[in-house]
Simulated assay, not measured.
Amino acid sequence: MYRDILLPVDLAHTGHDRPAIGQALKLAETFGAKLHVMTVLPDYGMSIVGSYFPPDFEKKGLKKADEELHAFVKRTVPEGMPVQHIVAHGTVYKEIVKAAKETGCDLIVMTPGRSAFEDFLIGPNAARVMRHAPCSVLLVRE
């Protein structure tokens, strides 16, 4: 039923993403789907904020995120499962939607957001992904 599954993870909070990770792995194994595991390095926001960082900060941040994503996949994804690593930089929900379109994913599996008061029920990124995604979105709660 699914050929390509996108699994966005927050490398700083993988414990929170654990339910979605488990579900994505089960679905990928069941359907023989390729798993696209991604993380997003958030944007600075206003360009003036970026001026306070060293010139190579973004490049180093992306390299570090890529290394951490590969280590995470090695620890988490069973050997032999087809997987693609995606490191994006920008607005989280926009990058998730963009990756889903570019990879032709037919399912995005993610958690609804951290349990902060402002994220009550569905976090802002999950809600936006659901509204703009080109495919089905499975929100997995704990």
Rank of each mutant, 00 (worst) to 15 (best):
M1F: 05
Y2L: 08
R3I: 00
I5F: 07
L6R: 13
L6A: 11
P8V: 13
V9T: 07
V9K: 04
V9M: 07
L11K: 02
R18T: 15
P19T: 06
A20V: 04
I21R: 06
I21E: 00
Q23Y: 10
A24E: 10
L25T: 05
L25N: 08
K26P: 00
A28W: 04
A28R: 06
A28C: 08
E29Y: 06
T30V: 12
F31V: 11
F31E: 09
G32N: 11
A33T: 11
A33F: 09
A33Y: 08
H36K: 12
H36R: 14
V37Q: 10
V37P: 05
V37C: 10
V37M: 11
T39K: 05
V40T: 11
L41N: 14
L41R: 13
L41K: 10
L41G: 08
L41P: 03
L41D: 13
D43L: 12
D43E: 15
Y44D: 08
G45H: 10
G45A: 10
M46V: 13
S47L: 07
S47D: 13
I48R: 09
I48G: 02
S51C: 00
Y52H: 11
Y52K: 05
F53W: 15
P54I: 03
D56Y: 05
F57H: 15
G61K: 01
G61Q: 01
L62K: 15
L62V: 13
D66C: 02
E68C: 05
F72Y: 14
F72T: 01
F72M: 05
R75T: 10
T76R: 02
P78Q: 12
E79N: 04
G80R: 07
M81D: 00
V83Q: 10
V83Y: 14
V83H: 02
Q84G: 08
H85C: 11
I86G: 00
I86N: 09
I86R: 11
V87K: 03
G90P: 00
Y93P: 01
A99V: 13
A100S: 13
G104R: 14
C105V: 08
C105Y: 04
D106H: 08
D106K: 09
L107P: 03
I108R: 05
V109E: 02
P112N: 08
R114E: 15
S115R: 14
F117W: 11
D119Q: 14
F120M: 07
L121T: 11
I122N: 07
I122A: 06
P124I: 06
A126T: 03
A127C: 08
R128Y: 02
R128W: 04
V129N: 03
V129P: 01
V129E: 11
M130P: 00
M130Y: 01
M130R: 04
H132G: 06
H132F: 14
A133M: 08
V137S: 05
L139N: 04
V140T: 13
R141D: 05
R141F: 01
R141E: 05
